[in-house]
Simulated scan of single mutants.
Amino acid sequence: MERIELWPEGAPYSQGNDPEDRPALTPYLLEQAGPQTPAVVVLPGGGYGMRAQHEGEPIAQWLNSLGLHAFVLSYRVAPYKHPAPLTDAQRALRYVRSRAEEWGIDAGRLGILGFSAGGHLASTAGTHYDRGDEAAQDPVERFSCRPDFMVLCYPVISMGEFRHDGSRINLLGPEPSEADIQLFSNELQVTSDTPPTFLWHTSDDAAVPVENALLFAGALSRCKVPFELHSFQTGVHGLGLAEQHPEARVWPELCANWFKRQGLI
């Protein structure tokens, strides 16, 4: 599978030259698609310490089955801390937009999908973004890094009371400042410009409390941002496509229906 490095000459904040120091996109492009097909950047979870394989390629293949182009992002994880992961996610969105015409992608219908800590990174991309720098020497940096829609799957959202300790430590360090805790508690960063969002979680998630999804949904509601939230009564953390789970296995169908309502498929 092709692996496209986001910074072939070396990434910002790089600590070396190994593959883990070189963030990259793996594209899953539809062979037959119209010239204005939506696309999704996929962020696997792993507590900002790894990237779970079952939340990468299988998700891209599912998106392909719905008629969407997909890209799995190999973003940097520990020992990398903020701002490296967000820089990688923002660069991925800019990069896909920079090649949208070549790949037949609708640059105005580019979304982001993340699981667990990847959901935190996705929600960070959806609440901390810019529209691009028209004066940038690097042409990729001239493109917007705002996702047009988000799918957040059992996401880490808050760095406060309902945090996932491992994600917070890996991203912000063992003693983050109160300012960083606030800044990356993304339920506090939602505005009326935050992208429409589909969320799902399990109510008894023992690793990442369901309050993370509830807090984000509440913030979206207050800002009148369209959203859909599903919380299944039971289910361990990290279900991915949840094909064997009696309840959560329906989330891909529910998400596909939401895509249809958004005019994406």
Results as ranks from 00 to 15, higher is better:
R91L: 07
R97F: 01
V40R: 09
I181W: 00
T127C: 07
E5Q: 15
D165M: 06
E211V: 03
Q61W: 08
S185G: 03
A70P: 04
E5D: 06
W62H: 05
T87W: 01
V72W: 11
P209G: 13
Q137C: 09
I181F: 00
S221W: 11
R222L: 12
A242Q: 05
Q182M: 00
A136Y: 08
F227K: 03
S203R: 15
E134D: 13
E161Y: 09
Y80Q: 05
A78C: 11
L229G: 03
Q90K: 14
E253P: 09
P252V: 09
E175R: 14
T26N: 08
Q15N: 06
P174Q: 05
G108P: 02
Q53W: 12
P209V: 04
R131I: 07
A219Y: 00
C145A: 05
P8Y: 12
R22M: 12
Q53Y: 10
G34R: 10
G240P: 08
N170V: 09
T194C: 00
V250A: 12
M1G: 15
E31K: 15
E211C: 00
V208R: 05
L264I: 14
P174V: 07
P209F: 10
E187G: 04
H245D: 07
G132N: 09
P246T: 01
E31R: 15
W103P: 03
Y75D: 00
H120C: 06
E141N: 12
S185T: 07
G49M: 10
E2L: 09
R76E: 02
E5P: 08
T194Q: 01
E178T: 14
E243C: 02
Y13M: 15
P83M: 00
T191N: 04
H69E: 14
V72Y: 03
S14K: 05
S203L: 14
F216C: 07
H237L: 03
T194P: 01
L229M: 01
A122S: 11
A33S: 14
S14W: 07
L86D: 11
E243R: 14
L199I: 02
G108V: 01
R249H: 14
A217Q: 06
G47A: 07
A179Q: 13
D130S: 11
R222T: 10
Y154I: 11
P58K: 11
Y13R: 15
K260L: 13
E5M: 07
G56I: 10
L152C: 00
H201N: 11
Q137L: 15
R249Q: 14
L172Q: 11
E247H: 10
A135G: 02
A179L: 09
V225C: 01
E211S: 11
C255L: 07
T127R: 06
L264E: 14
F71S: 01
H54K: 12
E178H: 12
C145N: 15
L63E: 04
V208T: 10
I181H: 04
A125Y: 04
W62M: 04
K260P: 01
K224C: 13
P155I: 10
G263P: 13
P176N: 08
Q137H: 13
P44G: 08
V236C: 04
E247P: 02
E134G: 13
G118F: 04
F216N: 08
Y48G: 13
A89M: 09
G108Y: 00
V96M: 08
L188G: 03
T87V: 15
A70Y: 03
H245N: 06
Q53I: 10
